[in-house]
C-alpha cells in the first residue's frame, strides 16, 4: 500500500493543521446527512405515502388523527430521528463533521469550551436505550408492512416494490439489532456468563448482536439510504411516473 502524503508545517505548534484529506469524511457526512434531512422533510410534508400495497417507511406505522391537519409522518418521525441522533455511530459522525470536536483524528478541535456528553444537550445521548425500545416496536410495524407488500388483493405476488421494502426492513433490522445499547442490554452488562443458564443464553445473544455491531456504521448508512430509496420508489408510484413491475399468482 502506498500512502500519498502532503507537506506538513515546519513548527510543532502547527502540527494539527496538516492532515491530508482530513476534510473528506466530514464533508461526506455533512453532505449526506443534510441531503437526507431535506429529503425526509420533503417526504413527510407530502401527507401521502401509500401506493397499494406499499407503505413508505416514513409513514409507518400509519397513524391518522382526524381533525389534525398534520402529516401522519410527523407522529412517528421522532422515533428514528431520536434513535439515530443518540446512536453511538452517528455521535462520531456529527461530533466530527458538524461540531468539529475534532473534525478528524489528530486535527485541531474547534476552539471553545468542551464538555463532551456531560452537559445538555449531549448528556441526553445517555437515553439511547429508550429510543431503541420504541424503534424495536416501529421495526415490527415495518416488517408487517414488508410482508403486506407481497399481498396483492389476497394473492401472493412479488413486485419490485416488494423487494425494495424487504431489503429496506432487512437493512433496518441489521442496524437496529446491532445497536451498542442492545449489545449491552442483552448480555454486555454481565460479568459471569457461566454462572447460570440464563447468563449463558445472554452470552449467545451478546455474541449475535456483536456480529452485527462489528459493521454498525455500514448498517447505519445502508439503512438510511434504503429508507430514502424506498420512499422515492413509492412516491414515483403515487405520482404515476411508472407502474410497479410485478408478478401475481
Amino acid at each position: 500500500m502506498t500512502v500519498e502524503v502532503g507537506r506538513p508545517p515546519a513548527l510543532r505548534s502547527q502540527l494539527n493543521l496538516w492532515k491530508p484529506l482530513w476534510w473528506a469524511y466530514p464533508t461526506w457526512v455533512v453532505t449526506a446527512l443534510s441531503a437526507f434531512g431535506i429529503y425526509a422533510f420533503f417526504a413527510m410534508i407530502q401527507k401521502a405515502g401509500f401506493a397499494y400495497p406499499y407503505l413508505s417507511p416514513f409513514y409507518s406505522p400509519h397513524i391518522v388523527i382526524s381533525g389534525l391537519p398534520i402529516s401522519p409522518a410527523f407522529y412517528v418521525a421522532w422515533v428514528p430521528l431520536g434513535f439515530r441522533l443518540t446512536c453511538y455511530y452517528y455521535r462520531k459522525a456529527y461530533f466530527r463533521s458538524f461540531l468539529w470536536e475534532p473534525p478528524a483524528c489528530a486535527v485541531a478541535d474547534r476552539p471553545g469550551r468542551y464538555t463532551g456528553e456531560t452537559r445538555l444537550p449531549f448528556v441526553l445521548n445517555n437515553f439511547h436505550r429508550y429510543f431503541l425500545y420504541v424503534t424495536l416496536v416501529v421495526l415490527g410495524f415495518l416488517w408487517y408492512d414488508a410482508i403486506r407488500a407481497f399481498d396483492f388483493h389476497g394473492h401472493f405476488g412479488i413486485g419490485v416494490g416488494s423487494g425494495i421494502m424487504l431489503l429496506n426492513v432487512v437493512l433496518l433490522s441489521g442496524y437496529t439489532l446491532g445497536c451498542h445499547a442492545l449489545r449491552s442490554l442483552v448480555g454486555g452488562g454481565i460479568d459471569c456468563y457461566s454462572c447460570s443458564l440464563a447468563a449463558q443464553g445472554r452470552h449467545r445473544a451478546w455474541s449475535g448482536v456483536s456480529l452485527l455491531n462489528n459493521r454498525h456504521a455500514l448498517w447505519a448508512w445502508a439503512s438510511m439510504f434504503s429508507v430514502a430509496i424506498t420512499d422515492i420508489y413509492i412516491r414515483f408510484l403515487i405520482h404515476g411516473v411508472f407502474a410497479d413491475p410485478r408478478w401475481v399468482s
Binding site: K92, F95, E101, G116, N213
Partner: peptide, 25 residues
C-alpha cells in the same frame, strides 16, 4: 462522559484493540 465517541483511539491502536466499541461504550 467527556468521551464523544470519535473513535480516533481505535484508529491508532497498534494492537488493534477495539477501544471504543469494546471498552468505552
Amino acid at each position: 462522559g467527556m468521551c464523544n465517541i470519535t473513535k480516533c483511539c481505535t484508529d491508532v491502536c497498534p494492537e488493534h484493540i477495539h477501544i471504543t466499541d469494546n471498552a468505552i461504550i
